[in-house]
Design a protein around this nucleic acid. Structure first.
Lengths: 335, 335
DNA sequence: CTGAAAGCGCTTACAG
DNA sequence: CTGAAAGCGCTTACAG
């Protein structure tokens, strides 16, 4: 509960000087090292801690960023947590606190944003599902001088900073990998349009079958959709020697269904998922997967946001992280 | 950027009155509904947002709680995220912001705590691994008038509020379940001492084999320890018809190893894990598991912390949530 | 009952 | 160069 004033009084120096020394912002002021040392020593001895509200009120900087996480990732994927780890660590490196709020509905998010301005956070980061309905709210927030960075796979607006991973690239990587492993007729569990498009492009370029019948359009990323896809392709008589899933859960569900129907993975069908979740390693057949580097996204997102906070006029180009392939046995070529 | 003063001036009322109306704390003051309405209307029209730093400085309440998360849960378990969801939602219900920081080492945590006092957060919640080394820091934080609640499975100190799940109870539940499913000779993958003890108690009470040789002491909760346990019991010649694991990853690793060695789950060996993670549903053999209700823990933790913030003198009794059994095929009794 | 005024603890432009 | 003083925007005890 010691205040700057207490230190100043005890040391017979001005409050200004103590403030300047303790905040490290000396301006044009000069102090003898002796005095500076005395001030710091006294602060320590008194257990002085800066009152962040008072400092924030005076400077207008809160040293706080808001993180809004909109239901991200399939349960167990661990991607939301990875992103938060990246954000948390990088924010700490920039001496920023992180205010976290999870959301399930647009309206919760809208009312949170509506209450916020530059006196509560220095900037805002939005993670998870992209919601065009919220664009107007994001822009309104910017008007209130709160810079915003989204961690999405598309840039919603030129004035909104974005870090993400291009989904078409993920889809391309999956298809290229299966082809490299010897697949000639991969099928696709298509939950993500851009990923599916990327995969189909690669198949077309390689002169492999790529008609729409080879894509099972799923509504979601859960393991059940993987089972459904296997059943669907069977009932439609679609032949395939590879399966591109859009989540690891999906891929796991598909593996289970295939094994149950007597097919072998990877001998008969090679499979690859997305998320590189922990379960890839301990699946019956260790699962090949593609990581979108969520942790790195979080880190780069914070950097971009900090740079926007320093210089609000910028319109930074979107940053796209490269997906990373993790090949495991589910896609292994015959030995 | 509108301030209370702007509203007051436009409406020709006092700043005090506007503050009282907008904060809803009228004290002994009375306003006509007409004036109150006018004030609120003007605030809306001007896009007024309370400056939380100024309010915090004046009242001493920050409407913010700090959440320190110390590497919690095996990757993919989803328990850290569940806990955060519970915390985030309940904090919002109490109109509190959540400041989140992840930690990997004691010292990071120590220095965070050391910088904090009641002018930056109203209270602190500690989740994840229990670190006795930090007890002194927690108590020092309390001295600085910051109440603290830990989400641990033991109470570290009578003055520290605690919400958790008693590990012996988890162990008991696992053993009781396997016995109910027909196991007469369960073995244990013992990563958690208290859980193992609980299971052994139940075995002893049921007059089933419970000598130490039936516990494989593992160092960690990853799937590899599950494989190691199966190999260990095989090489030691330990016979078992049930396997109690202390994480789902472990259980999954064990299932894989058992299947590879030609044993059937659940026919030859019944297995149960802990965490009730998403992967339980899409494992080759859907995995029975025990949930420690992390989401509920988070919720109750916030409630306890809020109550400590209102009334710092309390020494609330620890709250232990009941573990919840989720039976799946891996432990199914013969049909 | 009402509102002017002091105060929360810091920062910094600027008078001396 | 230095430090007194004003100011950040809110809250609330208390003088009238």
């Amino acid at each position: 509960m010691a205040r700057i004033e207490d230190i100043a009084r005890e040391l017979n120096v001005s409050v200004s000087l103590v403030s300047k020394v303790l905040s490290g912002r000396m301006g044009s002021t000069r102090v003898s090292p002796r005095v500076a040392e005395a001030i710091r020593g006294r602060a320590d001895a008194l257990g002085y801690r800066k009152n962040v509200s008072a400092a924030g009120l005076a400077t207008g900087r809160q040293h706080t960023i808001g993180v809004l996480m909109h239901a991200l990732g399939v349960p167990g994927s661990g991607i939301a947590e990875a992103m938060l780890h990246g954000i948390s660590r990088e924010a700490a490196a920039h001496n920023q606190r992180v205010i976290l709020q999870f959301f399930h509905e647009d309206n919760q998010m809208r009312s949170w944003i509506d209450e916020v301005d530059h006196t509560s956070v220095d900037g805002v980061m939005v993670c998870g599902g992209m919601h065009w309905d919220l664009l107007a709210d994001y822009l309104a927030l910017q008007q209130r001088r709160v810079p915003i960075v989204t961690l999405h796979d598309r840039q919603m607006h030129p004035s909104i900073g974005t870090v993400g991973c291009l989904q078409a690239g993920v889809g391309r990587m999956a298809a290229e990998h299966l082809i490299r492993c010897g697949c000639r007729r991969p099928a696709i569990i298509g939950s993500n349009y851009s990923q599916a498009r990327g995969s189909l492009e690669v198949l077309r370029e390689a002169d492999l079958p790529c008609d729409p019948s080879r894509v099972f359009v799923a509504r979601g990323y859960l393991w059940t959709t993987g089972e459904e896809a296997v059943a669907h392709f069977a009932s439609e008589g679609v032949q395939y020697d590879g399966l591109i899933a859009h989540s690891d859960q999906q891929a796991a569900g598909a593996i289970n269904a295939l094994i149950r129907s007597g097919r072998r993975v990877p001998e008969d069908v090679k499979i690859i998922g997305v998320d590189n979740s922990a379960a890839c390693d301990f699946a019956v057949v260790p699962l090949s997967s593609i990581s979108q580097q969520e942790r790195t996204q979080g880190l780069l997102g914070v950097r971009m946001l900090m740079s926007l906070i320093e210089n609000p006029q910028q319109r930074p180009d979107p940053v796209w992280v490269e997906p990373v392939l993790h090949a495991r046995r589910s896609s292994a070529a015959p030995a």
